[in-house]
Each structure stands twice: as C-alpha cells, then as structure tokens.
Amino acid sequence: MTDLTATAAKDWASDQEVRWCPGCGDYGILKAVQMLMPDLGGRPENTVFISGIGCAARFPYYMNTYGMHSIHGRAPAIATGLAMARDDLDVWVVGGDGDMLSIGGNHLIHALRRNVNLTILLFNNQIYGLTKGQYSPTSEVGKVTKSTPFGSLDQPFNPVSVALGAEASFVARTHDLDRAHMIETFRRAREHRGAALVEIYQNCNVFNDGAFGAITSRSARDEMLIPLVHGQAIRFGKEREKGVMIDGQGRALIVKVRDVGEEAILVHDETRTEPGLAFLLSRLSSGPTEPTPVGVFRAVPRPDYGGETNRQLAAAQDKSGPGDLSSLLHSRPTWDVA
C-alpha cells in the first residue's frame, strides 16, 4: 500500500550518525538530496540507493530508504540488475571518482550505454580519501601523493567526457558549494528516464583541500564557472561579458562577447542528438583551474534498458502466452514408453 502523504526532508534522513570528516563536501550533497526528495513526490520505500566503496559510498546509510553499500566499483552493475528487475523503483547510484572511474569504470560506461534507468551521482574529489590520500583517475598530472611522491604520470579522466563517449543520454556537472544548483541538477537527472550521470565537484578537505576552490569559491564563480542553460547563449563573467563560440575550425573557444558579437555566441542545446558539441564543451577546461562549464551538457530521450526489457517480456507473453512448464518440457521431440 503506497502512502500518498507528502514527505519532508527529515523523512528521508536515517537515524544513523553521519560519519564523514567534519568539513567534507559530502555533507552538502547529502543535504541537497534529502531536501530534493520531498519535491520529487516519491516515497522512501520505493527509493533505493546503491553504492560501492569509498567515502561517498557511505551515503546509503544516511538515507531512510532501501539501500545497499556493496563492493568497490560494482554499484552500477548491481543497480543495473535491480533497475531491470524492478522498474517501479527509483534507483540511485552513489560513488566517488576512484569507485566509478577506476575499479568500476567498466560498469559505469556499460550502465550509461545501456541507458539503465539510474540516477548516478559521481562525487569527484580527485583523490582517494578512504585509503588516505592516493591519487585518483581524475587527479591532475604531476599530483604528489603518498603513492606518487615524484608526481603522478597519469593523464586524468574528464568524467563528463567519459560519460558522453559512453553514449550517456544525460550528463551534467555541479559542485558541492552551490546547494540550489545541486538540487536543480539532481532534479533534472532524476526526472530523466534512463541513465543520468551527474559529476559533482566535491571538496576533500583532508587529502585534497581546495582542489576546486579556484572555480567554485564564491569569489571565483562568476569568472570561472560557465553555466549551461538550455536554449540560452553560453555566457559568463560578472557582466556576462564572456561567452563560448565555435570557430571556423570547429573549436570551442572562450571569447569576449563584444569582440565577436552576441549572435556568434553558441546557444546551448542539451537535446542535440549528436554528442559532439557537448563533448567540445566538456573539453573547454583541462581541469578545475580554468573556466569550466556546469549544468546539463546533454539530455536526450532514449528508451531505457529496463523498460525495453519489459517490452520484450510483454511481447513474448503476447505471442506465446504465459510460460507453461509442461509445454516447455515437451518442446523437443518426445516419445512414449508404455
């Protein structure tokens, strides 16, 4: 029996003590999700949070929903099974950059390409927190950590680029210091039918403090964050004096609006079938020290995997009727012995 009474944010918080480090960006993300939930109109019993391993992966314990804290990297795979089996549920996946892009990278890209109906929150802090400070697949080249005393050699992943390359139908980016932007982005992701990936720039104040400060701090945001709003020219700066244009060679460039004229500024269209332009936007910055787009990069309708699975099941039942075990056992040549 579904309870139709409205919920409040507190109905979505479990009774478990939250055990992230004081000052961790995860608190803000948890709060944003708990505040959003009543607005979405869902019920705690119909909502499931699945996580892997890592600091972010403790998330399900703090939500008063069904939840599974699974094993490192496997949350998208486990959630795929749950979402295929139960398309009546709201299934969320929560994990960090190591969890989802390193040990679980394979599962993430396949959940995205299949378009499993999942809302995936990727907490990107560019560091391994729970194992105490090794570099991650999103750490910048040259990062000095316990495991890279001479600097890391690895080219980092850009999670938005990875998701776009993996045929994701919904890709967005937000950050942990802007609750309103997080809530709006999560809402969009949740309302998208199919796999929705949200990269959240999240500060690890213990092992990678200030990794995003150059773009997400209040004082920097106007100049360093490029808001993507569907149907609007991509402009930023205190006076919206800067913008993004595509030049004659197909490059995305940051320009001064007055230099090129307003009509030259790219109007954001998150519904483009081809992901190429979204990919260009994802490459505007090479890291969180340069002007970086935030918001919804891509949101295109595509049939979701669980729905398509159920469609095939229904079609098979329409064609052959519900399965009959006796008919199955007699479906190959049989003979009788008297």
Partner: peptide, 19 residues
C-alpha cells in the same frame, strides 16, 4: 553483462529486489 563481475552483481541486485 559486460563481464563476469557485472553478471553476478546484476543478479545480486535483482535478488535484493525480490527476484
């Protein structure tokens, strides 16, 4: 599934869902 691990993972997820 994409690999053996995902095969069992998805089966376990479905089991959590009552399948």
């Amino acid at each position: 599934a994409e690999d053996e691990i995902a095969g069992i993972g998805a089966a376990l997820g479905a089991a959590f869902g009552g399948h």
